[in-house]
Computed example of a mutant assay.
Amino acid sequence: MSIATLASHSSLQIFHGAKFEGFRTIAIVLRDRLWFYEQFRHLIDDFVILNNWRELCSPDVVGKLQSLNTILVPHGSYVEYVGLDCAERIEIPIFGLRGLFRVESDQWAKMELLRRAGIPIPRLYGVGDEVHGPVIVKLPGAKGGRGYFIARSGEEVIKGVEERVREGLIKSPRDAIVQEYLIGVTTYFHYFYSPILGRVEILGADIRYETNIDGLRRLPPDVIIEVGLKPTFVVVGNLPLVLRESLLPKVLDYGIKFVEETRRSLPPGVIGPFSLEGVIDDETNIRIFEFSGRIVAGTNLYIGGSPYSYLYWNEPMSMGRRIAREIKMAIERDELDRVVT
């Protein structure tokens, strides 16, 4: 059995974890990035080389992956790179919930799923609505925050969205979603749902470091106004975070609610890693403004394990290794169909 993923995003920890658990590993890599991933041959057994990501669903590539008895592990860039059609229809077993890809590609559908789950979310607006207070305008897909912007009026929202249509970042104003701008600590919670063990695990948390919004914090407000700097939200890295223990019951409750809703509306429900992304305010309320149904890049902080993964496993357990451990347990119990779709 082989574990494969696209060579990007969180692939190195996926390969590292798969090797820990005794699997053969396959890097699906762009030709111009091959030289970099060849530096990690101790983690990678085979390379499938592409000229562009859209070649993934070609018969030759799919045939090679099938011949190697492959399970494909999607990460946060998977759909963005290969396109929704290929992501959904590829004839390779996928670790996780294939049916969640389409929901993740639609910001409105994502927020509706969170609402149905009973998870608190920010107030939402459409483009053209009157807004109250600062809002953040977000684009669909895994763009790492590229194109997001802050607005203070409906007119500013319309102007900014039209600019992004002209730039080709979105096709239509309907693709954007406008959310109340939440004040507090922006926190990304890492979860793993195990069908084999029947439990939701909290495996970590992180804070994203973004340019240039984080750099602007070091400038006096009058300088920002004078030179006309505007905040942008392109993610360049992640910072580790250990939460107050009193927050953990609420964090776990949200994770369980998310799993239960996906099981109702998208059976068999989410499998393996997912992330709820929110803001903790000064009264320790948590509202969730985003989710990812796959491994997120913030888990790269914990390749040696997080404080939380040690509480469950008492050994180094990254998210990449946790994925491989779940596959291994499923194979041992002859229940692989419970963790792949």
Results as ranks from 00 to 15, higher is better:
residue 195 P to F: 09
residue 248 L to N: 05
residue 201 E to K: 04
residue 53 W to F: 13
residue 196 I to Q: 07
residue 158 I to N: 04
residue 16 H to T: 05
residue 172 S to W: 09
residue 200 V to G: 01
residue 19 K to L: 07
residue 52 N to K: 13
residue 170 I to R: 02
residue 243 L to Q: 10
residue 184 G to T: 10
residue 15 F to H: 04
residue 41 R to W: 07
residue 232 T to Y: 05
residue 341 T to Y: 02
residue 135 V to R: 03
residue 68 L to C: 06
residue 281 D to C: 11
residue 261 E to V: 15
residue 184 G to L: 09
residue 182 L to I: 12
residue 83 G to Q: 06
residue 122 P to H: 06
residue 49 I to Y: 01
residue 288 I to W: 02
residue 235 V to D: 13
residue 213 I to W: 09
residue 255 G to C: 10
residue 24 R to L: 06
residue 99 G to S: 12
residue 169 L to E: 03
residue 232 T to A: 10
residue 327 I to R: 07
residue 61 V to A: 07
residue 83 G to R: 11
residue 106 D to Q: 10
residue 91 E to Y: 01
residue 11 S to L: 02
residue 89 R to W: 00
residue 145 G to Y: 10
residue 23 F to H: 01
residue 61 V to H: 00
residue 120 P to G: 09
residue 61 V to I: 15
residue 121 I to A: 09
residue 266 L to M: 12
residue 322 R to F: 06
residue 323 I to C: 00
residue 267 P to L: 02
residue 299 T to Q: 08
residue 291 F to K: 00
residue 106 D to S: 11
residue 134 P to E: 14
residue 68 L to V: 11
residue 249 P to T: 13
residue 182 L to E: 08
residue 225 I to G: 01
residue 268 P to W: 05
residue 132 H to N: 13
residue 114 L to V: 08
residue 197 L to R: 14
residue 15 F to Q: 00
residue 99 G to V: 02
